[in-house]
């Protein structure tokens, strides 16, 4: 395989696209020969980030969500999920486990904690009024496969 690869896809912020994003990232990551468990980690982290963009970023309105991924060194997968929604006023607070602005919708407040647990690295850049970018990476130790 090539040592470097990248992809980008943009989709509307509707909940149906959560599973679409999971399938896309899994299909892209498969060239790294991840284990079933690594694929589950990546799909879950992307699902959380895309759900945040839909539920919090656009909150009842519609906009576009961009999913980007790159592969470096034949093993490092970096994923970005970007929205142009309302942004997060206090990222540190938002990342606290169990913190949610939507308890009435039974949001668990565990989204960022799941991303942190399942990926090696997570950074969140957000500007209130212009959007949020979640960037996360994971090194895939090839040798897995299905």
């Amino acid at each position: 395989m090539n040592s470097h690869n990248e992809m980008q896809t943009t989709f509307l912020s509707v909940a149906e696209n959560e599973s679409f994003a999971r399938v896309v990232i899994a299909a892209f990551a498969v060239q790294l020969s991840p284990t079933v468990s690594e694929i589950a980690d990546i799909k879950t982290a992307v699902s959380e980030a895309v759900t945040n963009a839909i539920v919090h970023g656009y909150e009842g309105t519609r906009g576009m969500v961009t999913l980007r991924a790159t592969i470096q060194d034949r093993s490092l997968l970096t994923i970005e999920v970007q929205d142009s929604g309302k942004g997060i006023p206090d990222v540190t607070k938002a990342m606290e486990p169990f913190y949610t602005t939507h308890p009435e919708q039974e949001r668990s407040g565990m989204g960022f904690a799941v991303m942190q647990t399942f990926m090696d690295d997570l950074t969140v850049h957000s500007t209130p009024g212009s959007g949020t970018t979640v960037r996360m990476s994971k090194r895939i130790h090839s040798g897995g496969g299905y």
């Binding site: 999971r22 879950t44 959380e48 759900t51 039974e106 949001r107 668990s108 565990m110 989204g111 904690a113």
Partner: peptide
């Protein structure tokens, strides 16, 4: 498959 949305459903 389940993500943190499932946690909310179960705890609810």
């Amino acid at each position: 498959f389940m993500d943190s949305s499932g946690i909310g459903v179960i705890l609810g």
